[in-house]
Design a protein around this nucleic acid. Structure first.
Lengths: 120, 120
DNA sequence: TACAACATTAGAGTATAGTCTATACTTGCT
DNA sequence: AGCAAGTATAGACTATACTCTAATGTTGTA
């Protein structure tokens, strides 16, 4: 599929997809049989990857972190041990974030109590 | 206290503190009795505020969100109802983030399983 | 064949959140 | 007095992650 279809399927603009391509998150292929143009072609895996990018970005992962994550997933140059190490590291960092968020919840709840009490 | 002490107590550089001041997160006071300089003086509340900024930033809150949160806390121009509304909104957004993080944990755990199975 | 829609590349522009430099004045210590 | 350390301000610079524009060429449809 070409970039326009990829854009429609993922809800990510062509501009941003090209930016991700430059950043190394995805890779389109050129069709060598076609000499008249330079169009990139994308496969289903790229759709999956962009969906992962969207999810990971929404929880605050940077492009560089997402890049590591996708390497652990799709890159066959990494050993199983290396992949598991990257994945475990991400799991730990997620747990850490959840912990911090819960801490902030507690603080805000306490603030709420204080605000209500001050009102009396 | 002056900016240098504030910096030492919070671990935030003077440059960044001045940036936060420009952004409206904190406010130093000038001593009107002293005419020879223009130095800002900060109180304990400012230390508290900067600690809150640090915590909130670490969980991905933007300066604008932190600003709202601090208004709900310290600004006496807001009604109790308005304050509670801001705090409740932040609590909801934190819950949403925790939900997304848990979703990502599930995905990564599944990836781990897949990586291990592929290895067999 | 005209022409709208689509594709590529380079590069400029935007927003957020700092970070650093330069300049100049003030304060504290010896 | 001299000098290091502290302070303020303006503005330049950096990094991340887009977002948009311009120029140019290609494809598909009426």
């Amino acid at each position: 599929m070409l970039i326009n279809e990829l854009s429609k399927r993922t809800g990510i603009t062509a501009h941003t997809i090209r930016f991700y391509e430059k950043s190394g998150l995805i890779k389109g292929k050129r069709d060598e049989n076609v000499k008249s143009n330079n169009y990139f072609h994308y496969d289903e895996e790229t759709v999956e990857k962009l969906e992962l990018v969207r999810d990971a970005k929404s929880i605050g992962f940077t492009i560089s972190e997402i890049s590591q994550l996708m390497d652990a997933w799709y890159n066959n140059k990494m050993t199983v041990a290396e992949k598991l190490s990257v994945l475990d590291e991400k799991l730990l960092s997620i747990d850490e974030r959840i912990k911090q968020l819960k801490g902030m919840k507690k603080m805000i709840s306490q603030f709420k109590k204080d605000v209500i009490e001050d009102d009396c």
